[in-house]
Design a protein around this nucleic acid. Structure first.
Ligand SMILES: [Zn+2]
Ligand SMILES: [Zn+2]
Ligand SMILES: [Zn+2]
Ligand SMILES: [Zn+2]
Lengths: 140, 140
DNA sequence: TAAAAATTTGTTATATTATAACACTATACT
DNA sequence: AGTATAGTGTTATAATATAACAAATTTTTA
């Protein structure tokens, strides 16, 4: 076994696997009901796995939705620096990987001299697909 | 009565008043217990007032804390474009008013052509006061 | 100004999200 | 082997938020 990259525990693997299978963010209790057949019985088992996976950067919490999504950026890491694009209509979430924006955020200093070690940015809007549907509807 | 700027309702005033009195963000159930003497009895009365105050931009929700804070920026408006600095140690929250950062966020476009109408950005770190306390502690 | 519409209120009950606490097991380190 | 660290399983409960409905109030319109 690889001694450098400590592998995930049983429950952590089960939870991560379920989150990665889903295109959209998933909720904690939805994870629970979907992995009960794998032997995870109660909320604490899910939340512990979530906490760990967040800590090591494998997943992120979408704050405005109380939901969890797999990280799409290889070196996202920890402490957390996350940017998401969220559709108000279909609630789909995309993790954004934009070096220029990252630099702007990394370089930001406030007036009070706070030392930042992370950030979370959520953009809200209407995705292209939902926008098109809206246009379709106004045509008739 | 002023016909242009529709005034707030009784419960909305009570809740806003309490939030504005507090330097730190406050939680919904803390609001509830603190305004019960004013005749607000149950969670829905608080949450309705909060929803309205958020909608009109008088307060903001601090997503990572499930808490609510008065808006410190006159033209913050709606839909919402908010930036906060949050101390991981004392949990104090400052609303940031930085035109250059605002411009960067306003101008951001993603690859998928999503049309954004708002954002929420939370910076996490250690405020100056907490940093100084930490340094004090390591001296001994 | 009277009727209609929209908003707000008060209330009970319930849904959703998350953690505390404790005994136990597995794994990693020395 | 012995110790420390991390993970598990479980029960109970805390914390956050909404549904639903009848009544009252305020605003708008006719
Ligand atoms: Zn990521
Ligand atoms: Zn969409
Ligand atoms: Zn504001
Ligand atoms: Zn602080």
């Amino acid at each position: 076994m690889d001694k450098k990259s400590k592998s995930l525990s049983k429950n952590q693997k089960i939870v991560l696997d379920f989150i990665q299978k889903n295109k959209k963010p998933v909720k904690a209790y939805s994870i629970l009901s979907n992995v009960q057949k794998k032997g995870i019985n109660a909320p604490p088992q899910v939340y512990r796995a979530l906490d760990k996976l967040i800590k090591i950067g494998k997943i992120h919490r979408v704050e405005s939705q109380n939901s969890f999504v797999a990280c799409k950026i290889s070196n996202c890491g920890t402490p957390h620096k996350t940017v998401f694009s969220i559709c108000n209509s279909c609630e789909i979430v995309s993790e954004i990987n934009d070096p220029k924006l990252f630099k702007n955020l990394k370089d930001f200093r406030d007036k009070d001299g706070t030392v930042f070690d992370g950030y979370n940015l959520e953009f809200f809007g209407t995705c292209k697909s939902c926008k098109n549907k809206q246009i379709e509807n106004t045509k008739h």
